[in-house]
Design a binder for these strands. Structure first.
Ligand code: MN
Ligand code: MN
Ligand code: MN
Ligand code: MN
Lengths: 255, 255
DNA sequence: CCTATTATTTCGGTGTACCTAAATAAATTA
DNA sequence: TAATTTATTTAGGTACACCGAAATAATAGG
């Protein structure tokens, strides 16, 4: 419960801890966190102790790591920064969706709260980034569409692409070349068992019937990176991730 | 002569060393460098040793510090980054000229070379920042207008404001409120001796005659922060600061 | 239930960029 | 010139964010 001097490392740790539970509910372990951050396990142990001192995470030795309320606040502010930056880079500076993640990963730690606000205003307060990920608002509210990972869906199902993991630029370029992007309509034709390819029909955003759809085989990496909302699921629920107070606190007096 | 792993500290040191000689020719001393960076003298001694190892500066103990050719290259790339960012913030995100310096001071270390290029393209490759400072082009060429500091000019002289030091936001706001900005026409009416105020007439950019000009007293801090080109001086000389190679080298493979 | 494997933490150590205090060189002044 | 003042460097130490290797806890297999 120290006075919380933040740093880009702390920001990244907290953001990764948050991201892990964004689309499923198991909390992250030390080893998983290390893998995602590209650091040694021992580094995570030390940093988690520090995060706990600063009341950003809950943690008992040898058990998974959970964000506290103020950790969640910081995480959401970083996620907001990251996704707004990605959106800005695409809309205002002509970046493609496979270029933005890396750039945003650094910029998110360097821009001021003022910058974020001006950017959000200029963009009209968008609610989805270029990969379909929801952008938390300035108060920490975030709307999660009820999505399913493509590899968990059976043949015959249809859906609209709601998000695509942005961590592999090559995959993004591949999908783009084959006409798959946010809001693309997909139908699962069939699947080869035991982690083989997934056969899908893809039609551009908005096409309700699959006439002009393209047939495509997707490998495992694509299948676990694509999320869809199935027809007839509820429109999306606003998750009140935080109550009270805006997100700007940790960054108003940063450096 | 090490393989040059750069860092934001190194970038700031080199940039400050460069800036010191941008408008006069004495090289910077250890103490002056420490003062401008806001660090202890001892920190400068250590860092200068490292800069010398990396062939970014020339330095003999107890003597002033000079950039080498590759130090100058790095410095110009940082100055370009800083000034393009300031220009972008004003033109695209509605910042005022007193807000941009601090923001650019951090962003300059975080943006990629791609970001710089896209920004420069969008702005139409500007050659002056919001404070009138010249922006080096991508090859390290920079055009310095033949400017004089206002406090070095005698009564009766006229000139056009070519640059205003951007380090004091309060001063920038003050000058702005009183109608002084880049390209304002100034005439020195008189001065109180011994560091007193300087009395000037100020007319908006473009006004050739001083009829609608405003009378104003400027204190010492304002006088040393304002630079003017006097009527009838040559139009400005392109200084070939670097020959061969573009500036992008140190940043293409940063983190 | 004991053992082997795996997960996690602890320990000792590194590089960067700072700091204060002490030592030394250079420049002034008497 | 000698003494004093000022500038600069060196010495010793801190915080941060890492690392590999060793120790320890948890889990899984027999
Ligand atoms: Mn990051
Ligand atoms: Mn994204
Ligand atoms: Mn800087
Ligand atoms: Mn400027």
């Amino acid at each position: 419960m120290k006075p919380t001097p933040t740093s880009s490392s702390i920001e990244d740790y907290v953001k990764v801890i948050y991201s892990f539970t964004e689309w499923q509910d198991k909390p992250i372990t030390s080893t998983q966190l290390a893998a995602r951050l590209g650091v040694a396990n021992s580094s995570v142990s030390e940093m988690v102790r520090k995060l706990k001192d600063q009341d950003l995470v809950e943690h008992e030795p040898y058990s998974p790591i959970r964000l506290t309320r103020s950790g969640l606040r910081l995480a959401l502010s970083m996620v907001r920064r990251h996704r707004l930056l990605e959106t800005y880079l695409v809309r205002e500076l002509g970046y493609t969706w496979d270029e933005v993640h890396e750039e945003a990963e650094l910029l998110e730690h360097a821009v001021s709260e003022t910058f974020i606000q001006r950017m959000a205003d200029k963009l009209g307060n968008p609610t989805r980034d270029p990969h379909g990920d929801p952008i938390p608002d300035a108060d920490g509210h975030i709307t999660m569409p009820p999505s399913h990972r493509l590899d968990e869906l059976d043949a015959g199902h249809r859906g609209r692409v709601s998000r695509i993991s942005d961590h592999n630029p090559e995959l993004l370029r591949y999908l783009d070349e084959h006409g798959i992007g946010v809001d693309t309509e997909l139908e699962i034709v069939g699947r080869r068992p035991f982690g083989g390819t997934l056969e899908v029909l893809a039609a551009p955003a908005g096409s309700k019937d699959m006439d002009r759809a393209v047939r495509l085989d997707l490998g495992d990496e694509a299948a676990v990176s694509l999320w869809v909302v199935t027809d007839g699921s509820h429109p999306g629920c606003t998750v009140q991730e935080l109550t009270g107070g805006s997100l700007m606190s940790p960054h108003t007096a940063s450096p």
